[in-house]
Amino acid sequence: MANAEKVRVVPVAERHKKDWRRLYDGYAAFYKVPMTDEIADRVWGWLHDPAHVLNCLIAEDADGRAIGLAHIRAMPRPLSGAECGFLDDLFVDPEARGRGVFEALFAAMDQMAQKNGWPMVRWLTQEFNYRGRSAYDRIATKTPFILYQRETPSA
């Protein structure tokens, strides 16, 4: 695959399960998060539940093999009284990087945002994700927000 014209982005389908899991495992490994069958099966279920907010876009090569994924959902923005898109996870197969998969996934997310009336798509990434951040810096504006997290106390 030499360029983005050979990358097709489609909604996740049952036929993608094995490749989706391979990509999702790669994403989890990058962030050093243990992935279990229980977690993966739950997320896979969410992706096929029309009532669940999470969606998945799959980038396929010319042979129909999944080579990238994006988990995206609507996110309310109370101060604007509107929703925007929120990209939870993005992963491109290391063997497919530099071949237009990233750009194809973001083009598909742009179309999703236009269809849903989202004025923007937001996401977070880790400080150490230098390759990803370099790509994000090409296509988006880094915001001044700082993320905090508080663990829920036990009852």
Rank of each mutant, 00 (worst) to 15 (best):
E5Q: 04
E5V: 00
V7Y: 00
R8N: 10
A13L: 04
H16I: 03
D19W: 02
D19V: 04
Y24N: 11
Y24A: 09
Y27F: 15
A29L: 13
F30R: 02
P34V: 08
P34S: 15
E38I: 00
D41Y: 06
D41S: 13
V43H: 01
L47I: 05
L47F: 03
H48S: 04
D49T: 05
H52N: 12
H52V: 00
N55L: 11
N55Q: 14
D61L: 03
D61P: 03
R73E: 13
A74C: 09
A74W: 02
P78I: 09
L79C: 12
S80L: 14
S80E: 14
A82F: 05
E83R: 13
F86D: 07
F86M: 03
L87Q: 09
L90Q: 01
V92F: 01
P94D: 12
E95A: 15
R97L: 11
R97I: 03
R99F: 09
G100D: 08
V101I: 03
A104G: 07
F106Q: 03
A108G: 11
M109W: 06
D110R: 15
Q111E: 14
K115M: 10
W118D: 10
W118V: 12
W118K: 06
P119E: 05
M120G: 00
M120S: 13
L124R: 09
E127L: 11
N129W: 08
Y130I: 11
S134R: 12
S134I: 04
A135H: 11
D137V: 06
A140W: 04
T143D: 05
Q149C: 07
R150S: 04
E151H: 05
S154V: 12
